Simulated scan of single mutants.
Amino acid sequence: MRRILILLLAAAGASVAVAPSPAGAAVCKDYADQAAAQRAADTVDADHDGVYCEGLPCPCLKPGAAGGPSRPAAGRHRRQAFRLGATIRLGPRTRTHDCAVRGPLPDPRCTPGAVYEHATRPRVCDPGYSAMVRDVSDTVRDRVYAEYGIGRHRASTYEIDHLVPLELGGSNSIANLFPEAASPAPGYHEKDRVEDRAHARVCGGARTLRSTQRSIAEDWTVLYRAYVLPRA
């Protein structure tokens, strides 16, 4: 009797082992673009920042964008920001009104860029770092739009972007925020791709974190031409 029971259990185990995987996409290559993967939200979010399949071509969506999943709650993780030290501006912030974008670039008088003092390479390369420190309120977003004189607009027209991205040690300070348009290209979709590739180079040791922060703050389109256009 015992032998029969063992054989039955073995047979059941074998049937489980060969059972087909559940239907549905589970890898990025199942999607034509990042926006589609973001809407589905059923792939692996490798760095836990709420953005799926960041390597796929645009059109793109970020957490909280129309049609995408809501932003991951920072909640208990926000205390991590207090261990990042002071915000260091990469230039003086001399204006708080009548700011004007310069194509894909912010007004340096209003948005000189800013980084966290203790946002080191090991920290920013730790999976989930961006989600842990992301903390920009709707009130601050409205203030940025007001400083740049932007009133009513469609949700997909602009996004309040970090000039120096969080994944590269950027601060949530208003000195590091500006309204970035989606079009004409390069816009915020293209900047997302620059950020991902710059992050990969920093974490792979090909670039230093501080020099990359400076390059993006001064003119991120230089890295766009270096990293994205050759692959387009």
Rank of each mutant, 00 (worst) to 15 (best):
H77W: 14
H77R: 11
R78W: 13
R78K: 13
R79N: 10
Q80R: 11
Q80Y: 12
A81V: 14
F82W: 07
F82R: 11
R83M: 07
R83I: 06
R83Q: 09
R83L: 10
L84N: 05
L84S: 02
L84R: 03
L84G: 00
L84D: 05
G85T: 05
G85I: 01
G85D: 04
A86V: 06
I88V: 13
R89W: 12
R89N: 14
R89Y: 12
R89E: 14
L90G: 06
L90M: 08
G91R: 01
P92N: 12
P92W: 11
P92M: 11
P92F: 10
R93N: 07
R93W: 08
R93E: 12
R93P: 10
T94G: 12
T94C: 12
T96F: 13
H97S: 15
H97W: 12
D98V: 08
D98N: 13
D98H: 12
D98L: 11
C99L: 06
C99A: 15
C99D: 07
A100Y: 09
A100C: 07
A100T: 12
A100I: 10
V101G: 08
V101K: 11
V101D: 09
V101Q: 08
R102A: 10
R102I: 10
R102Y: 08
R102D: 10
G103E: 01
G103I: 03
L105V: 02
P106N: 06
P106W: 11
P106D: 05
P106V: 04
P106A: 05
P106T: 08
P106C: 05
D107I: 04
D107Q: 01
D107H: 04
D107Y: 05
P108L: 09
P108W: 03
P108E: 02
R109T: 13
R109C: 11
C110Y: 04
C110P: 06
C110M: 01
T111C: 08
T111G: 06
T111A: 04
G113Y: 03
G113L: 03
G113H: 04
A114S: 07
A114W: 03
V115G: 01
V115H: 01
Y116W: 15
Y116G: 01
E117C: 03
H118D: 15
H118N: 14
H118M: 11
H118K: 15
H118L: 13
H118V: 08
H118Q: 14
A119G: 00
A119E: 05
A119F: 07
T120G: 04
T120A: 00
T120W: 00
T120L: 02
R121S: 03
R121F: 02
R123G: 09
R123L: 15
R123S: 06
R123I: 14
V124T: 06
V124L: 09
V124W: 06
C125R: 02
C125E: 10
C125M: 00
D126W: 15
D126F: 14
P127I: 00
G128C: 13
G128W: 09
G128P: 12
